[in-house]
Amino acid sequence: MFQRLPDAAGERVSFTIDGRVAEALAGDTVAAALMANGVVACRTTPVSGAPRAPFCMMGVCFDCLVTIDDVGNRQGCQVTVRPGMRVETQKGAREAAR
């Protein structure tokens, strides 16, 4: 669980998580914005179905995989949130056609 410092500088950006409207700080990565919005797990694994959350925040662990604007398995910590972005948490393996 993470919270923003009360005086954090920057514009607010509106996007959606699984269809719900959420708010990020300009410059947030998708993974950071998920943490800021209290998302516990961003996906379940294709191997065992275990829940996972962002772990390294620097693009090496691939635990923060999410679907962004209909493209599956994107590294949430490597993508900057844009206004109107649609972020979806994932269950298991990426859908072949998404």
Binding site: P46, V47, G72, N73, G92, A93, R94, E95, A96, A97
Partner: peptide
């Protein structure tokens, strides 16, 4: 490639999907 949901049951010459996805 990365694992995906099963979509390809048949081995297709140069392309096949493994049981793990």
């Amino acid at each position: 490639t990365e694992k995906t949901t099963p979509f390809l049951k048949f081995p297709v010459g140069y392309v096949r999907q493994t049981d793990e996805g």
